[in-house]
Simulated scan of single mutants.
Amino acid sequence: MKIAIVGAGMGGLTAGIALKKFGHQVTIYEQTTEILPVGAAISLWSNGVKCLNYLGLTHEIQALGGAMESLAYVDGLNQQTMTQFSLTPLYKEVGQKAYPVARADLQNLLMQHFGPQDIQLGKKMIGIEEHAAHVCIQFQDGSAADADLLIGADGTHSLTRQYVLGHNVERRYAGYVNWNGLVEIDEGLAPAQQWTTYIGEGKRVSLMPVANNRFYFFFDVPLEAGLDNQRDQYKTSLKQYFKDWCAPVQQLIENIDEQKTNRVEIHDIEPFMTFYKGRVVLLGDAAHSTTPDIGQGGCQAMEDAIYLARALQINTFGLEDALNRYQNKRNERTREMVLRARKRCDVTHMKDRQLTEEWYQSLYQEQGTHIMQGIISNIVGNPLD
């Protein structure tokens, strides 16, 4: 088939590689004139890694991923360790390590394996027109492209989603702002091979190891939406929000590069169950935009990509049958991930003070089993189990 993918993010590129492996003619159309990563890094849990293994990228992703061997929660104000444990039992249970990865590194890897020659930049889609045997995509520059199938991997602001559902869907503000970026690993901030999260006051400061001796960091602060976003004030703002926190958090704030730090107001979208219409199908954030609170956004996009490619390959009752199978396989799982992330978001960011304080106290008794089972429940049920 001749397949057009709109959006050159993680989901679109993964789908493109998988579909090419099955012999399809694939072109990716990207609205920006330069492909830049959205966010500093991604928590690539074992299910996402398995998707890349399936594409033959096992060694490449190992080289890009950080050595995350343990997990810890630390009281952000007094620096007391609440719980700390090895992730080895989790990895053995699911059969694959997790690899936090810098987004730029992962995006470059996927682009090279897909083939940059088949990515057209500066192609902002403005219209979709379906015909009996093909779909026509119209672009802002006046050009158009025909395909047998259009895959909308165009993110949380998806125009493809509006076409499939027949109406626009409003994003829901999750109630917090996230600052994220990369810093050099410093054992004074956290152990080099550990995912360390400082928590307190409904706020969160997290450090995860990625390749090339770097930590991926993020700060979460419950705030109203629409506040001023001045890059040269990031350190000042973070010092204010975390003024009474422990020394490693203060040092992290000093270490960040404001010019390379991202600030994001976190949103999700109410889950819906319709993922396709005619010859147009949704994938990734276009189909199930979620908060990052369980680290499954990118992984679910990759799962979509693998399952869609396989559905098109192994089912022989036509395009609609394959798309329907993809939809019915993915919509329940992704709905559950969106709602789990939303629930975790509310507890972490103190939507209900009592529930959050109870969670804080429970961490002092946590031996790792409960947290790991929660992560495992997100990983299992992927298309490669």
Rank of each mutant, 00 (worst) to 15 (best):
Y29V: 08
I314N: 11
K20S: 08
A301K: 02
Q296W: 07
H288P: 10
G127L: 09
L252T: 05
I119R: 01
Q193P: 00
Q120S: 09
K260S: 15
G12V: 07
G381N: 14
Y173V: 08
I199L: 05
A341W: 06
A322E: 12
R161L: 13
L227M: 07
Y176G: 02
V6D: 00
Y198T: 03
F215S: 04
L106F: 04
E224S: 14
L252G: 04
A311F: 11
V6E: 00
Q84M: 01
G284T: 11
E258A: 10
G127H: 14
D148P: 01
E130M: 06
V6K: 00
L87I: 14
I17H: 10
I294C: 03
R231I: 14
R344I: 13
V280N: 00
C345N: 13
T88E: 15
H267F: 15
M208F: 13
Q84G: 02
G142I: 13
T33W: 11
Q140D: 15
G48D: 01
R342A: 10
R171T: 11
N168Q: 15
G188H: 15
I294W: 05
G202R: 05
G368N: 05
R335K: 14
M82L: 15
N328P: 03
N382G: 13
H349F: 03
K123F: 04
V281P: 14
R353L: 13
G142Q: 07
S46V: 05
N229W: 09
T274M: 11
I371S: 12
T32L: 07
E34D: 05
P209F: 11
Q120A: 07
Y307G: 08
A309E: 13
T14S: 14
Q84H: 15
L363S: 02
Q62C: 06
V177P: 00
D141C: 08
T261Q: 05
S206Y: 06
V74E: 04
K20R: 14
E30T: 01
P100F: 02
R161A: 10
Y163L: 09
K343W: 13
Q233T: 07
Q296N: 06
G278L: 10
K277Q: 12
L36E: 06
L64A: 01
G381E: 11
E129V: 08
E201K: 10
A144L: 08
W179E: 00
Y326R: 11
L323K: 04
L182G: 03
G65P: 02
V264H: 10
G374V: 00
A15G: 03
I371L: 14
Q80A: 14
E129W: 08
F275D: 09
V6A: 12
K20N: 06
K123E: 02
M273K: 15
M302F: 00
N331G: 01
N47P: 04
Q194R: 15
H167A: 05
F114N: 09
P191F: 09
Q354R: 09
N331P: 00
N229V: 11
Q31N: 04
Q250M: 03
T33R: 12
D154W: 07
K20M: 03
R103D: 01
G66W: 02
I17C: 08
T156W: 06
R204A: 02
V221C: 14
I371G: 00
T356G: 07
K2D: 12
Q31D: 04
A40G: 15
